[in-house]
């Protein structure tokens, strides 16, 4: 394995939400294959600053694949070519010497570009605010072991709750649908006894907000599941659909 590679980067640059964007080509010489993709971007930015240019803005924070802040559509894939990997965990050893790497921001109406590769994902927060909670005030809780939860349900709820809210599902979906994101929360609470009381309202409210934000609908291509860095299964979307149908059937709201 060679220790350094040379790449041509084609990066989307856009001054702000209102400006026209365009691709700018950067010649990246001597990229260590041990770097993460974001570290490679750091190196690019350091070079740009020293040349008196503006660095490329991109979102990131934990760099451990858990905060969900990093994004980037790399060579036609959300978070780049590796499955189950966020951009911050993607390492340069997966790129070939001489390769051209195209870097674009997440593209979706409800994710408008703020600058360069940074997009606004506050629509996700609003979906959660619409119903992604269990109404329990601090101090009201019964003993944690008062209600046993079957291990299988707890594990499945956890698998859904592992969502990091990065938006890769939307970015990858041909319809820019956020159904995987919404379903992860609906499904988590639907599986737990604590979530039962509000289950019909929750799914209605969250789906409604999802649609209001302008996300597309799910056409079951499975691209979201394939791109999800936490490998969240579309079976959660099925469960959400079930919850939704149940809520229509119940119809007391």
């Amino acid at each position: 394995m060679s220790e350094t590679i040379n790449l041509t980067l084609k990066v989307w640059r856009q001054a702000d939400a209102g400006s026209e964007g365009r691709f700018v080509i950067y010649d990246m010489q001597g990229v260590s294959t041990h770097m993460s993709f974001l570290e490679m971007m750091d190196v690019l930015n350091e070079r740009l600053i020293k040349k008196g240019e503006e660095p490329v803005a991109f979102d990131h924070d934990c760099r451990e694949g858990i905060c969900g802040m990093c994004s980037m559509f790399i060579n036609g894939r959300a978070h780049g070519p590796m499955d189950a990997t966020t951009t911050c965990q993607l390492h340069m050893r997966h790129f070939k010497d001489g390769e051209t790497v195209v870097v674009e921001p997440w593209r979706a109406g409800p994710f408008p570009v703020i600058k360069d590769l940074v997009v606004d994902r506050s629509s996700f927060d609003r979906i959660m605010q619409a119903g992604g909670f269990i109404s329990v005030n601090t101090g009201n809780a019964p003993d944690a072991n008062a209600t046993p939860v079957p291990k299988a349900d707890a594990d499945e709820a956890f698998a859904a709750a592992a969502c990091i809210g990065c938006g890769a599902c939307v970015a990858a979906c041909k319809n820019a649908s956020a159904m995987l994101f919404v379903s992860a929360k609906v499904s988590q609470f639907a599986l737990l006894p604590q979530g039962q009381v509000e289950r019909t309202d929750r799914v209605q409210a969250m789906v409604r907000q999802h649609d209001l934000e302008g996300f597309g609908g799910c056409t079951n291509t499975g691209a979201c599941e394939a791109e999800c860095p936490k490998e969240i299964s579309i079976s959660h979307i099925a469960r959400m659909n079930r919850e939704y149908l149940f809520s229509i059937a119940k119809g007391d709201k």
Binding site: F73, N75, G216
Partner: peptide, 16 residues
């Protein structure tokens, strides 16, 4: 309409 600006490169074939 949910994606007004399209991607320049897409490798959909790898995921669906």
């Amino acid at each position: 309409a949910a994606r007004p600006v399209k991607y320049q490169v897409r490798k959909d074939g790898e995921t669906s």
